[in-house]
Design a protein around this nucleic acid. Structure first.
Length: 585
RNA sequence: GCGCCCGUAGCUCAGCUGGAUAGAGUAACCGGCUUCGAACCGGUUGGUCGGGAGUUCGAAUCUCUCCGGGCGCGCCA
């Protein structure tokens, strides 16, 4: 359709009616109102200024120059200069056959063919179970990945494991202290330690496996450690306190045993995160270890490269990256005064590593609270001589939890949070996934736990799944009734589908590939969710208005053909969102 | 103070990248099962698209400026 108009515009250029530099790639859209035909084109209005004539006149010229074709039955010039196209109905109905022929492939594209895209998402620190905030990134990232795959891209899903750094040491220390409690020691647990019950569970396992091997006396552990911050002691320094405890753990346990405790904490939590995500339907191609970067000197190599290019300078004993050269607000430290690399330094090396792996496009999905971090990473990428055109950071706003009309606070430290696992147990995987992606990602998401838990059948996901189950039910009824459905015969009698409900359902089926394309390229899963709701609505309306298991064999075949195609599209769409298409519910 | 996101029906949100009379869900009210699943369908009520100015054939959409809300501004991760 858009080709037709493009050709018309080209011949107008040849005739000199419009300037040669006019864009000929036109936008054709499905009309919202049936009175406006099936497709509409606004090219005449866009080009009117360039062509120095009024839009309606130009539209007439375009229509006159449309190449001959078999499926446009009528064109109309309407409003300020829209060209409305009316498409031959039998041509429209062919989409039913197309859907059924292509099956699961219907709606896929080749626009990403030959391009490798990496999607990195969740990447939560392995210091505790995933909470509901991570769930949104998980659902969003996995659906974006699936959409890109449907668009033809070769997709690599990756989780960046922050298995190095101070937070992990705090985790190790927390586990060890809980372990000491189990050994009978008693002391005040540090304010800055991880206090969740899962730490106690890990400590318990550690003790079962190693008995008292890591036991040290509390008085030795706290000997010389700076005072903690407590209600009774507001002068205390919780940061210095925990850091000193980490050093104590290392010195009292020795390197090997410290690593054993550290590893126990890390692996237990990481395994839990893996299982959790797998049960949520989120799979990864790679779990990339931050530690591996320093093991392979990649951080040093990245910094050296920046140094060579002249973007590193020293000040106050620290090494700074000149990110302001690339639009960042201020320069950033990469190596601290104490010689330790910053998290940012790892991230520079990590992104350099991504480019070296040969991806054509990188997508990072972050929580919106990290948005201030974007400019410095882009700066680093540019400084390393890479283009940021194919580097996208998609920000996901927080899911704000409401419980009993009150905001529920989330904090991994305090242990008072709702985990993703708890949420899945309450509302189910399908509802949770759908709920997470049904809103634009940059929109704050109000997640009312009470509503989700008590009235989960109000969730739109059931509405869509019900449409699928209903179609399956019709086909079950068909076998029971002794009637038959002959797809081959149906292909020839599609002209019997002449009601308004049928036409609107057919148009919806035809729209699906465009929806996938737009949702994939814009990284907007909610468009697909919205579409599926509309499609289900078209079907339910149709279902209530007409019957399928009828005596008229021709009409029966045609109608069953239509709802069979509808079922296929529902399946394809639900598969991309990663939720079930149940045959009965 | 600076930066990013957001402000559309009572509530929760779409609005296809500037198009035609701004749409769904939910809530409220009315109606529809002897018939393939009522977890459904139809209808009614509900809007100064936060305010103002600008850009043009045309603005919820783009620009500026106020107002209101969220988040971020470490030699933390």
């Amino acid at each position: 359709m858009s080709e037709l108009v493009s050709l018309a515009l080209q011949s107008l250029i040849e005739q000199g009616h419009i300037p040669a530099e006019s864009p000929t790639d036109v936008l054709i859209e499905h009309t919202r109102d049936k009175a406006h035909g099936d497709f509409a084109c606004n090219a005449a209005m866009r080009l009117a200024k360039l062509a120095k004539c009024n839009p309606r006149e130009l539209a007439t010229r375009i229509v006159e120059n449309l190449p001959a074709n078999s499926f446009v039955t009528k064109t109309e010039i309407a409003g300020p200069g829209f060209i409305n196209f009316f498409v031959d109905e039998s041509a429209q109905r062919q989409i039913i056959n197309t859907v059924l022929e292509q099956g699961r492939a219907y709606g896929t594209h080749q626009i990403g063919a030959g391009k490798k895209v990496q999607v990195e998402f969740v990447s939560a620190n392995p210091t505790g179970p995933l909470h509901v905030g991570h769930g949104r990134g998980a659902a969003y990232g996995s659906v974006v990945a699936s959409l890109l795959k449907a668009a033809g891209f070769e997709v690599h899903r990756e989780y960046y494991v922050n298995d190095a750094g101070r937070q992990m040491n705090i985790l190790a220390a927390s586990v060890w202290l809980r372990y000491l409690e189990l050994c009978g020691e008693s002391f005040a647990f540090p304010a800055n330690g991880y206090k969740g019950d899962y730490i106690r569970d890990i400590a318990q396992e550690l003790r079962q496996a190693h008995d008292n091997r890591f036991h040290r006396k509390a008085e030795d552990v706290f000997q010389g450690v700076p005072e903690d911050l407590t209600d009774a002691n507001p002068q205390g320094d919780k940061e210095a306190h925990i850091d000193a405890l980490i050093e104590k753990a290392k010195s009292l346990l020795g390197a090997a045993d410290y690593r054993a405790v550290f590893g126990k904490g890390l692996n237990t939590i990481l395994d839990d995160i893996r299982d959790d995500l797998a049960e949520f339907g989120v799979e990864y191609d790679e779990w990339f270890s931050e530690q591996s970067l320093s093991d392979n000197d990649q951080i040093q190599i990245a910094i050296d490269e920046l140094k060579e290019k002249g973007f590193i300078y020293e000040e106050g004993g620290a090494l700074w990256f000149r990110s302001t050269d690339f639009g960042d607000e201020k320069d950033r430290v990469v190596v601290r005064e104490n010689g330790q690399m910053t998290y940012f330094a790892s991230d520079i090396a990590y992104h350099l590593n991504k480019y070296q792996r040969g991806f054509d496009q990188l997508i990072d999905i972050w929580g919106a609270d990290h948005h201030g971090y974007v400019p410095r990473v882009r700066a680093a990428i540019e400084a390393l001589g890479k283009s940021t055109d194919d580097f996208h950071v998609l920000l996901v706003q927080f899911a704000i939890l409401y419980r009993g009309g009150q905001k529920a606070q989330m904090s991994t430290r305090s242990g008072e949070f709702v985990t993703l696992r708890e949420l899945r147990d309450e509302v189910g995987r399908d509802a949770a996934r759908f709920f997470y992606i049904m809103r634009k990602s940059e929109q704050h998401l109000d997640f009312d736990l009470d509503l989700a838990k008590s009235q989960s059948s109000d969730n739109p996901v059931y509405y869509i799944q019900y449409a699928h189950a209903r179609i399956c039910s019709v086909f079950r009824g068909l076998t029971e009734s002794g009637q038959h459905y002959h797809p081959k015969q149906a292909e020839g009698v599609l002209h019997r589908l002449d009601t308004e409900h049928e036409q609107s359902l057919i148009k919806s089926l035809a729209r699906y590939p465009e929806v996938i394309k737009a949702a994939a390229l814009n990284h907007e899963p909610h468009q697909l969710a919205q579409y599926l709701r509309d499609l289900a609505n078209d079907f339910h309306t149709y279902y209530n208005a007409h019957r399928f298991l009828i005596e008229d064999e021709e009409l029966r075949n045609a109608r069953l053909h239509l709802i069979s195609a509808t079922r296929q599209v529902l399946q394809n769409g639900l598969a991309i969102i990663g939720i079930a298409a149940p045959e009965a519910m």
